[in-house]
Design a protein around this nucleic acid. Structure first.
Ligand SMILES: [Mn+2]
Ligand SMILES: [Mn+2]
Ligand SMILES: [Mn+2]
Ligand SMILES: [Mn+2]
Lengths: 224, 224
DNA sequence: TAGCTAGCTTAGGCGTGCCTAAGACTTGGA
DNA sequence: TCCAAGTCTTAGGCACGCCTAAGCTAGCTA
């Protein structure tokens, strides 16, 4: 039985992408509708149906028309392995090879599927066992555990809040460059002097400077 | 026309493997028979026929039943790019991440297809512009030039020759470990005290020690 | 010169991962 | 209550990269 599980580990890149996306969409706690997955992965709903059937046969998801798809414990494991690879790679590219935080996502998205466990281990050691990636996302342990994050979106901050940037979405490189250009890096401390009103920008005081942060940037930034 | 060439750069992993194999089999100078390629890549001759047809349409090989397949200049370029990636990755894994020379080949074989030009460049810089991989193979420049090697097989050495290990085949990890266990690393100086007779082992003097080198190991080792 | 054989190609087929188009649920509003 | 929309699945098909089996060719040997 555990032999079978081990053999089932021949997951393809595509399968790993579905599992990772499911994980990101919260398919551990609640079922995810196929349409949501289709949008996320930019494939047709029919493709999602196909793939979910395959993943169900492999025992990586459960799939029930009424609710949608959920990860099995094994599926969660594979998903977390990809997340670990992704974030570790991002951290390595930044810390060891001088990448900027807006350059690493696409590279990691490709490499996460083809690094060995040995390489994973060596990068982890070389970085001294990092806990977070360059965007502030936690790196799952080999066992698959993740510290729970308790930060909030910059968008929700009120005037007078004194906070630090703890996390950003790594999806849109342009926005990451813009944040960096405003002086916002991971760990940067600032005070919210003007909260967002009528969908206007937030105003921050940061290193004695006043900085305007457009809504679209505040939405991808998280603080604590 | 150069637009078309640029667009033709969407080569798949499989295509890149064929081009790299062709390069390795000398398809720059002379035509390579499909059967040779099939053996090299461990695929059927029919598969080779299919793929060569595709590569010919892409302008990467010329293919002529009488002689076999040859790389076009563009095809040679793609092949050399893969060789560069492969050797650079091997060098990086050894020098930056503590891999041994017998551990890097498979890892590099997978990664060579999915690293970006940026990552290639960063690894190259991080290593200070290396010229050789951990097996003594030259790393092609971005422009695609390669220093010509003038080493000879250890098998061909005569008693009395005083030489250094300059290159080894990276295909068989077991043999690489065996060479290392005998004290043979890249650059190791030694004297051939007994050449191979009747398919017996060579005998070397190496750091005051006498070492027997089986034919199968001597065959993959090169010296100058 | 007439086979015969080795090597290459063709034909047909399979698994994967994607698509579009068309059917089948489900579900909320009229 | 019943229909219209939205959602999901089924059906059929395509590109890729591989396979086996069957033909073809060309060159060597008898
Ligand atoms: Mn791993
Ligand atoms: Mn990240
Ligand atoms: Mn390159
Ligand atoms: Mn090598």
């Amino acid at each position: 039985m555990s032999k079978l599980t081990a053999l089932a580990r021949h997951t393809s890149s595509a399968q790993e992408d579905y599992l990772k996306a499911l994980y990101g969409l919260g398919a551990v706690e609640a079922a995810v509708p196929p349409s949501r997955l289709a949008r996320e992965l930019d494939v047709s709903p029919a493709s999602v149906t196909d793939m979910l059937a395959k993943l169900a046969v492999l025992g990586l998801v459960t799939h029930d028309r009424a609710h949608g798809a959920r990860l099995t414990p094994t599926g969660r494991g594979v998903a977390l392995e990809m997340v670990r690879h992704h974030r570790l790679l991002e951290a390595y590219l930044v810390q060891a090879l001088g990448y900027r935080w807006d350059e690493v996502h696409d590279e990691a998205d490709r490499l996460e599927h083809c690094i060995s466990e040995v390489l994973e281990q060596r990068m982890f050691q070389a970085l001294g066992g990092p806990s977070f990636d360059p965007h502030g996302d936690p790196i799952p342990s080999t066992r698959g555990s993740l510290p729970r994050e308790h930060d909030r979106c910059l968008l929700a901050c009120k005037a007078g809040d004194r906070v630090r940037l703890s996390r950003v979405s790594d999806r849109e490189p342009e926005k990451l460059r813009a944040l960096r250009a405003l002086g916002l890096e991971l760990g940067t401390a600032f005070e919210v002097v003007g909260e967002s009103r009528w969908e206007g920008p937030l105003e921050l005081r940061l290193n004695q400077r006043l900085v305007q942060v457009p809504l679209g940037l505040a939405r991808i930034a998280f603080v604590h």
